[in-house]
C-alpha cells in the first residue's frame, strides 16, 4: 500500500456518502462503505478520469416521478447514467470506459428478490444497456464491504466488514 500511496503523493481523499456520485479529474482516493447498496466505479485510462456511485435503491422511476440532482445518485440506474453523461462531457469515449460493480450483500434470511440483488441486477442491466464494459464485479455474499477507489488508476481494493452492515456510510 505504501507503494500505491508513494506513487500518488498528492492524491486527494474523499468519503463518498450514500446516494452520492462523483467524478474526479485529479487523482483521488475515494472511500465508501456498502451493505446491500451498490457502487459502480468508472475509469477512463486515457484521461485518468475516475467516477463512482453509491446507490441504495435500484430503479429511480419505481420511486420518483421526477429526476433531479438531489435524487439521481440514490438510484442505481440513474446514478450510472449520470456518471456516464459526466464522462462523455469530459471527452471519454464509450469504448474506453471501464466499469466495476461492488456490493449487494444479502442477509441469509432475506428472500431471493432482495433489494441487494435488485440493485446488482439493475447495475448490470443498466451498464449493458448503455454498452459500458463491465471489467469485473465483486457482489453478493453476506458481509458488507469497505471500498477504496483510486480514481486515476481505476484500482479498487475491498475490505470485508465483519457484519452485513445495512447502515451504509
Amino acid at each position: 500500500m505504501k507503494t500505491l500511496l508513494a506513487s500518488n503523493p498528492n492524491i486527494e481523499t474523499h468519503f463518498l456518502g450514500v446516494g452520492e456520485g462523483r467524478i474526479f479529474r485529479q487523482p483521488t482516493l475515494s472511500q465508501t462503505v456498502l451493505g446491500s447498496c451498490v457502487s459502480v466505479t468508472f475509469h477512463c485510462p486515457r484521461l485518468e478520469l475516475g467516477g463512482i456511485t453509491h446507490a441504495l435503491m435500484p430503479v429511480w422511476s419505481d420511486y420518483e416521478s421526477r429526476m433531479d440532482e438531489s435524487v439521481r445518485y440514490k438510484f442505481v440506474d440513474s446514478g450510472i447514467e449520470g456518471i456516464y453523461e459526466l464522462f462523455a462531457n469530459q471527452g471519454a469515449r464509450l469504448a474506453e470506459i471501464e466499469c466495476k460493480v461492488f456490493g449487494g450483500a444479502t442477509s441469509s434470511f432475506i428472500s431471493q428478490l432482495s433489494v441487494a440483488q435488485k440493485n446488482v441486477k439493475t447495475a448490470f442491466e443498466t451498464l449493458t444497456r448503455l454498452k459500458l464494459r463491465i471489467a469485473a464485479s465483486h457482489v453478493g455474499g453476506s458481509q458488507g464491504r469497505k471500498l477504496f477507489f483510486f480514481s486515476n488508476s481505476g484500482d479498487v481494493f475491498v475490505k470485508y466488514l465483519k457484519t452485513m452492515n445495512n447502515n451504509c456510510k
Binding site: K2, K146, V158
Partner: peptide, 24 residues
C-alpha cells in the same frame, strides 16, 4: 482483461496482501 485486475482480485479475496488493510 489486464493482469492487474487478476492481482487486484487476489488482494480483494485476501489471498495476498490487501492494500485495503493498511488504508483502513
Amino acid at each position: 482483461y489486464e493482469p492487474e485486475i487478476v492481482v487486484e482480485s487476489l488482494a480483494n479475496l485476501n489471498l495476498i496482501d490487501n492494500p485495503a488493510d493498511s488504508l483502513d
